[in-house]
Nucleic acid binder design. Structure first.
Lengths: 215, 215
DNA sequence: TAGATTGTTAATCGATTAACAATC
DNA sequence: TAGATTGTTAATCGATTAACAATC
């Protein structure tokens, strides 16, 4: 069995491999080599080979990997074939967009419901998903065994919501709020931080212009 | 003047420092030390000190940094005080949510308009922002000098949209589509890839349960 | 002064890359 | 067989951490 413990870097590249293998744009033979994936994605081929080795052990010299099987192995490794239940807190614009996004099941995420502190939102539905009042949260989480919580509240409320989620049994938090969340050991916070992305974009533009102007 | 060329890792941490300094939760003295920031965010203090040194040179032994000035320096370094124009392509659910998001100006991003290939969307407004047909894109970008393009179309269309953006003068692409984009040298693609985040969440849960079950 | 804090220089760690042996 | 491709072992690179000197 391949090693289940991979580096964060590897884990971040695996979805790109899967995406490439699924895309109709790529080469369409029965087999696919790490080398060709590397070339298509602009990566070093040894990196790809090492990454694939942690997901599959079916690579054959000269032949490569069986495309269909590698896809299945990646999907399984990434948990796409084993859906996890999640709940979302904060049914504002972003929260509703996520509730309505139909692509998550494909990635093994099943959002059961949204929660919001605003009582006027309670009872509404977004894309067939109920928005419930906050006091229903602990019960639902514990009863169903929800382990993933999605935070889409304003930054100031994020920590309180996070604490509540963890109290209710959540083990992994997907945080869209611009806040640093304090959590106990063993709980994962995955920040989807737009401010970080924007900083990288802005820095790229500044560097480009300063280079052009300077040299 | 502090060094303008910082590592990607540093750049990713700077917004967290700024966020912490702005937050009312933190200590509220006139001065703030790298050590205290490090402690609050769970980072090594030398990392924070090195990061801050690339943004400011006003740190004083025993005293630390003047909070207000450090905030200004971070904002300036991150480009929050120097807004960049952007356009968005793909006015579906996610696209509309981003168009409507009122927090971007705070981060120096100003979305001028949305574009969509669907003619039935053209002419609509979302939060005061026009949705325009695709054929208006090149002209607007060039006329205004837009350098940032946001892609929120389905994966299959992302590369074509990306090419069009670059043709129209865009230098940095913020890609929300699940697709690997091929771009010429000098163009930045910043992927906001939900699949990657979900992979990290899913992996955490798997590891937690396998550890619990195994040992 | 004494001690907290800064900034720097050296050591450690981990990831990437390069070189190579194994194999279909 | 020959050559493409895999997987592994060693070398390189960069980031983090540790140790230390400087200073208000």
């Amino acid at each position: 069995m391949p090693d289940r413990c991979v580096s964060k870097q590897t884990l971040q590249r695996l979805p790109a491999y899967l995406n490439y293998l699924r895309s109709p744009g790529g080469k369409t033979g029965k087999n696919v080599s790490a080398t060709s994936i590397a070339e298509a994605l602009g990566l070093n081929d040894v990196v790809v080979r090492k990454d694939l080795a942690s997901v599959s052990s079916k690579g054959r010299p000269k032949v490569g990997y069986a495309r269909a099987e590698l896809i299945r192995e990646l999907e399984s490794f990434l948990g796409y074939d084993n859906s996890q239940d999640a709940i979302l807190v904060g049914a504002g614009k972003l929260g509703q967009a996520l509730l309505a996004y139909s692509g998550f099941p494909q990635y093994g995420l099943n959002i059961l419901a949204g929660f919001d502190a605003d009582p006027s939102l309670a009872g509404r539905e977004v894309a067939g998903k109920k928005i419930l009042p906050m006091d229903k949260l602990p019960d639902l989480c514990r009863r169903v065994g929800v382990h993933i919580g999605i935070i889409t509240v304003p930054g100031g409320q994020a920590q309180a919501v996070c604490d509540q989620l963890i109290d209710s049994g959540v083990l992994a938090v997907w945080n869209f709020a611009n806040a640093h969340l304090q959590v106990p050991r063993g709980i994962l916070v995955q920040n989807e931080n737009m401010a970080v992305s924007l900083a990288l974009l802005s820095n790229h533009l500044r560097e480009r212009f300063s280079t052009k102007g300077g040299a």
